[in-house]
Design a protein around this nucleic acid. Structure first.
Length: 833
RNA sequence: GCCGGGAUGGCGGAAUUGGCAGACGCAGGGGACUUAAAAUCCCCCGGUAGCAAUAUCGUACCGGUUCGACCCCGGUUCUCGGCACCA
């Protein structure tokens, strides 16, 4: 240990030692309790940013802490390495996506290594490699065999700029999540995964996951959007057909005064064919086609629509009602048609007002402030039934059940559950992804490639035009093949998979990353899974986290995994922000962004202060879930603290050389240091292990260091205690800043790596004080603080305090009405006068 | 509009079960060391009044419960995030 803290030399030295000794490599060990600590793997953009550093620093603290606590810790890393940027780079620079990707991965690996994260690199998984996507294809085929993959022609979300389709989840505000272009609709034949089959399980299991943030569970719940209601049929005048609608408010059926169909409703053209209204209806449908989703779903937009010329008949009232079409009715939800109840639905109210349709109230809350016969807006709350025949007087909630049952009896309705969740569209018209291993044969239809022929390799003889069809279609070697079933000429699917499939099972591959016989060995997966702690950005709250849960359930149902939920505990870390001046000169604190220029590169910080300082600052500046504002002076502060610790340990290593850590705390100062020392062990253990509040854990160690500085300058110091304090400080700090701690550990004469050293244990007896400070309050206000003997009960504390002169003076001449004594905490005396 | 967070000094943030508000750090002020600077070490640091001891106000706002509220309850404002014509 040198006198100066030479972070560069120290970090290089220990990273090399760790690598040579292969300390982070783990294997299944049934004699030890396992702990799987996982951070979301990065996309290999080429450079680590501060968000990565934060994510991986949090994970590294947890992994190292659990290892020191005796767990067999799996802490893997890999790269989510298929995707559009590699392809765009290929178009721009004429290089192959694989070249761009692998050089970026190499660069990021070295950056990760420079930060000293404790990854088992032997388990590294890169999704673009054959050894990975081979098993991705195998899993896809298992889905297909189970009936969970199908191809279907549908209007799909199309991004004209990326020239590919998008999943519903990838359309944000009607725009492409990636490039922000407006998304349009296009009819295409595409592959889907039947995630809707798992909608109930995905929703219900959320209740069983106490280790997930409420926020994420709510977001998934809303996304799945389960809605329980009733489907019922309306007769169409002059037609054999019935118009089926879905409603959650079947109690309002007597208030229906019109019907609305979606312009895309399959029955529409037949209904209007040959009528006077046909031209107007077709014209409206044509207009709607040209609207983007944003324009169409804008709530501020005034309702539009056209009368179809046809009438429906209410099955309960036999009332005759006009059928309209309007774009506010979505073909993709429910039955694509609704019953219009203007009195009790705001959208229907707006529509009825615009078209001068009748408004009949059927639910009345019986309150003065609501006049249902004179509504200015729809009344959507609860009340008693009116204008509803035999149901009048019932609570509307009861009427939902009663009316649904009656409709069922006459065969015109039934209970029905609807979901917002749609099947997952996974085809992408791109090159840089896993080829969908399906073959189309004119005789056999769609059939999968034989499993023994996997992987279906990405062809290399392709042109990257960036337009239209998948570039794979330009390959002269790929498309033509033979049918695996009948052997006749057939054609391969040229689309690739959404990269979200790759990331839906990578945590399973880590359990057995080098397996070339299977995606993973179920026994190994059974040992490691589920992930005990998953850490990543909240931006994946819906997409990735729900897809991964879906995959896990399917793989469980296939008998490949024991558990059906992948992540027991989830931590969503906050973003890294930095302040900057905008065009007007205002000080804005926002997300670090290259286009704004308010970024700090990890590399720069590591070069200037070292990896330990970067890690320490990022963990200290804010609790992990909250946003973190970058502060250059804050980084300096973290660096100063590490120097301060280094100097302390350097001094103590000399001063306490060869002294055993056996001691008895004799003096008041000994006892105080011993107390703070053990209390710090307890606090840091809780802060890392239970609370995930690394910032307060680090604060506690700072306080301990301040106390040791104070203590060591005293005349009468206990060398054994001091030695123990020094060693403990290094151990407590080591999950946060491992390099400097290894160096100090060595400086203290230790030969083992502290990576495997047992975590310090709090000596509870040191926490028992002879006297404790309690607070004396008068009417709830602090008036006095005094030391009292420890262990006094309620009465003893009261009696002791009332004897003290200071307390006597406080109550003198006053009328004591009540006293509240809380042992170990305080005494509150309520007085009058 | 609906659903979730959040609001505490000049700043980031503490307060773990209803019990000393402001730990720890940053910035700032003062001092020691130094020829000087850097580094380091020590002290001060919410507002108001006061030389001071101390008093008093103070956790977005209004009200409530309690001996006692940053914490629990009711209402309001602002703010961040998610969803949004889902019948």
């Amino acid at each position: 240990m040198k006198e100066q803290y030479d972070f560069k030399a120290i970090e290089e030295k220990w990273q090399k030692k760790w690598e040579e000794a292969d300390v982070f490599h783990v294997t299944e060990d049934p004699t030890k309790e396992k702990y799987y600590c996982l951070e979301m793997f990065p996309y290999p953009s080429g450079n680590l940013h501060m968000g990565h550093v934060r994510n991986y620093s949090i994970g590294d603290v947890v992994a190292r802490f659990k290892t020191m606590n005796g767990f067999n810790v799996l802490h893997p890393i890999g790269f989510d390495s298929f995707g559009l940027p590699a392809e765009n780079a290929a178009i721009k620079h004429g290089t192959h996506p694989a070249v761009w990707t692998s050089s970026n991965i190499a660069e990021m690996e070295s950056q990760l290594k420079r930060l000293g994260f404790s990854y088992d690199w032997d388990r590294e998984a890169c999704t673009y490699k054959e050894e990975y996507y081979k098993w991705m294809q195998w899993i896809f085929i298992q889905f297909w065999k189970k009936g969970l993959a199908y191809k279907k022609e549908n209007p799909v979300n199309w991004c004209p700029s990326c020239a590919t389709v998008l999943a519903n989840e990838q359309v944000v505000d009607g725009k492409c999540e990636r490039c922000k272009s407006e998304v349009t609709k296009k009819d295409l034949s595409q592959w889907y995964l039947k995630i809707t089959d798992y909608a109930d399980r995905l929703l219900d299991d959320l209740e069983k996951m106490p280790g997930w943030p409420e926020k994420v569970k709510t977001m998934q719940k809303n996304w799945i959007g389960r809605s329980e209601g009733t489907e019922l049929d309306f007769d169409i005048e002059g037609s054999e057909k019935k118009l089926r609608v879905f409603t959650t408010r079947v109690d309002t059926v007597f208030g229906t005064t019109f019907m609305v169909m979606s312009p895309e409703h399959p029955m529409l053209h037949e209904l209007v064919h040959g009528t006077e209204q046909e031209a107007a209806v077709e014209k409206y449908c044509e207009q709607v086609k040209h609207l983007s989703d944003i324009e169409r779903t804008s709530t501020s937009k005034e309702k539009t629509g056209v009368f179809t010329g046809r009438y429906a008949v209410n099955p309960l009232t036999h009332k005759r009602m006009p059928i309209y079409i309007s774009d506010y009715v979505l073909i993709s939800y429910g039955t694509g048609a609704v019953m219009g109840v203007p009195a009790h639905d705001q959208r229907d109210f707006d529509f009825a007002t615009k078209f001068g349709l009748e408004i009949i109230p059927v639910v009345d809350p019986g309150r003065e402030d609501v006049d249902v016969n004179n509504l200015t807006a729809a009344f959507e709350a609860e009340g008693k039934m009116i204008n509803s025949g035999k149901y009048d007087g019932m609570d509307n909630k009861d009427a939902i059940v009663a009316i649904r049952d009656d409709l069922k009896k006459i065969g015109l309705g039934e209970a029905k559950t609807n979901y917002k969740l749609r099947d997952w569209l996974i085809s992408r018209q791109r090159y840089w992804g896993t080829p969908i291993p399906m073959i189309y044969c004119e005789h056999c239809g769609w059939v999968p490639e034989k499993e023994e022929n996997l992987p279906v390799l990405l062809p290399t003889d392709v042109e990257f035009t960036g337009k239209g069809e998948s570039p794979i279609a330009t390959s002269k070697t790929f498309v033509d093949t033979v049918c695996p079933v009948c052997g006749k000429p057939a054609k391969r699917e040229v689309d690739t998979m959404d990269t979200f499939l790759d990331s839906s099972w990578y945590f399973l591959r880590y359990c057995d990353a080098r397996n070339d016989k299977a995606a993973f060995d179920p026994k190994k997966a059974a040992y490691w899974m589920p992930v005990d702690q998953y850490i990543g950005g909240v931006e994946h709250a819906i997409l990735h986290l729900m897809y991964a849960r879906f995959f896990m359930m399917v793989l469980h149902d296939l008998g490949l995994t024991a558990c059906d939920e992948p992540f027991t505990n989830l931590l969503t870390q906050g973003m890294v922000l930095k302040g900057y001046n905008d065009e007007k000169g205002n000080w804005i604190v926002g997300k670090m962004s290259k286009s704004i220029g308010n970024t700090v590169s990890p590399e720069e910080i590591v070069n200037k202060y070292g990896a330990d300082t970067a890690r320490l600052f990022i963990l200290f500046a804010a609790p992990p879930e909250r946003e973190l504002e970058w502060s250059d002076t804050g980084v300096e502060g973290s660096f100063r603290f590490l120097n301060r610790v280094y100097r302390l340990i350097y001094d103590l290593a000399e001063q306490t050389k060869g002294i055993p850590t056996v001691y008895r705390a004799e003096t008041k100062d000994d006892k105080q240091l011993n107390y703070i020392l053990n209390n710090t062990i307890k606090r840091v253990t809780d802060d890392i292990g239970k609370r995930f509040n690394f910032n307060t854990g680090i604060s506690a160690i700072m306080e301990l260091v301040n106390e040791i500085y104070r203590y060591k300058e005293l005349e009468d110091v206990n060398m054994g205690l001091l030695r123990y304090a020094a060693e403990t400080t290094v151990l407590l700090l080591s999950p946060f800043v491992p390099h400097i701690c290894e160096e100090m550990w060595e400086g203290l004469g230790k030969e083992d790596s502290l990576y495997f050293h047992p975590w310090p244990v709090c000596d509870e007896s040191a926490l028992v004080k002879d006297t404790i400070e309690i607070v004396v309050q008068i009417n709830g206000k602090v008036r006095e603080k005094m030391d009292v003997p420890n262990g006094l009960d309620r009465d003893g504390l009261l009696a002791y305090c009332m004897e003290q002169d200071a307390v006597k003076a406080l109550v003198e001449g006053k009328n004591v009405i009540k006293t509240v004594a809380v042992p170990g905490k305080l005494l509150n005396i309520v007085v009058k006068g």
